[in-house]
């Protein structure tokens, strides 16, 4: 047993150090930072001055931050509806007895595997390009006028569209695994009783997918709070009001942005804590919802 003790300690220690170094210590310090006035992120603790909830009231009074939150909300709601609807649609199609199911499934999931930076570059430089872009060519073939997809009016929706395209596959896989767990005899019995495909979907598939839908909404919400890369790619040099999201706001306030040398690590920490609280709330709400009727089948 003594031998085991030494082994346990040796085996667990590196993992413990990793947890403490990149999770425990940074999280505690970030929470502390959000209550202090700190200019530079590298400032020593002795240079911090207690600020109470000042950072929070400052960010919530900042119109840029409110805009960032509003954009995040739009991404969550509009993007969520489209992504999860497409994902569910594809999941239902792929489990309906279609041929080449494995190939289709792999092809739809593909954008999740390739570098998102490369994917975003392809969308920006090709699909949305106003000179030779794919979308304007398609519009032109129908005799329609091209749209400036990357102009101020359309940029947000262009970004969201590209993001949805990349995200659908992941949620589709989760839906597929949920649908495949539903026993086939339920559908067979319904078919014998004369229910058509739509009725089967509404009366059998949807109710039994409640838990999976909940999981997907949770994942989508957490995914949205971390939204950064696509916004950075669509406004690579200077942050723009059309594409700003909270993580971009945090990045700019902590590390500085073009034409703005003022830095505020305290406010940045407050943004981080706000996002973390949102994630905790999402988990709490989702675990409270639908808890009682978790179906066993």
């Amino acid at each position: 047993m003594k031998k085991n003790k030494a082994m346990i300690v040796c085996f667990i220690l590196p993992c413990l150090i990793a947890l403490a170094a990149v999770y425990l210590y940074p999280v505690v310090r970030t929470v502390l930072m959000s209550f202090f006035a700190i200019d530079s992120v590298t400032a020593d603790m002795s240079g911090w001055t207690f600020y109470g909830l000042g950072n929070y009231s400052r960010i919530f009074n900042s119109s840029t931050y409110r805009l960032a939150m509003w954009n995040m909300l739009r991404i969550w709601l509009v993007g969520g509806i489209f992504t999860l609807s497409f994902a569910l649609l594809f999941a239902v199609i792929l489990t309906s007895g279609i041929r080449f199911k494995k190939f289709f499934r792999a092809a739809i999931y593909l954008p999740n595997v390739i570098s998102a930076v490369a994917l975003a570059t392809m969308w920006i430089q090709y699909i949305y390009n106003s000179d030779y872009g794919m979308l304007n060519r398609i519009l032109g073939a129908f005799g329609l006028k091209g749209v400036k997809w990357l102009g101020t009016d359309m940029k947000f929706w262009a970004m969201l569209g590209a993001f949805i395209f990349g995200a659908v596959g992941y949620y589709m896989l989760i839906f597929i695994s949920g649908i495949e767990r539903i026993p086939q005899d339920l559908f067979e019995a319904a078919t014998i009783d004369g229910a058509n495909k739509v009725q089967q979907f509404v009366k059998i598939t949807l109710p039994l997918l409640k838990g999976i839908i909940k999981t997907n909404i949770t994942f989508w919400s957490v995914h949205t709070t971390a939204f950064f890369l696509w916004s950075k790619m669509f406004s690579p040099i200077g942050t723009e009001s059309t594409t700003i999201v909270p993580v971009i706001y945090l990045y700019d306030t902590v590390f500085g942005s073009q034409g703005n040398a003022a830095r505020d690590a305290g406010a940045g920490a407050a943004v981080g804590v706000t996002l973390a609280v949102i994630i905790v709330l999402i988990y709490a709400v989702m675990n409270g919802l639908l808890r009682d009727d978790d179906l066993e089948f």
């Binding site: 667990i12 993992c15 413990l16 947890l19 990149v22 999770y23 425990l24 210590y25 940074p26 999280v27 310090r29 970030t30 930072m33 992120v41 590298t42 400032a43 020593d44 957490v222 709070t225 971390a226 993580v247 945090l250 902590v254 690590a265 940045g268 920490a269 943004v271 981080g272 804590v273 996002l275 973390a276 994630i279 988990y283």
Partner: peptide
């Protein structure tokens, strides 16, 4: 405790950890 710690760590957003790591590694 450690098992739950690992699961919690999986859902911690990276914005919560970058600032202290940045300041520590710079110092």
């Amino acid at each position: 405790v450690m098992k739950s710690g690992l699961i919690v760590a999986m859902s911690i957003p990276s914005v919560m950890i970058i600032m202290p790591i940045f300041s520590l590694t710079t110092r």
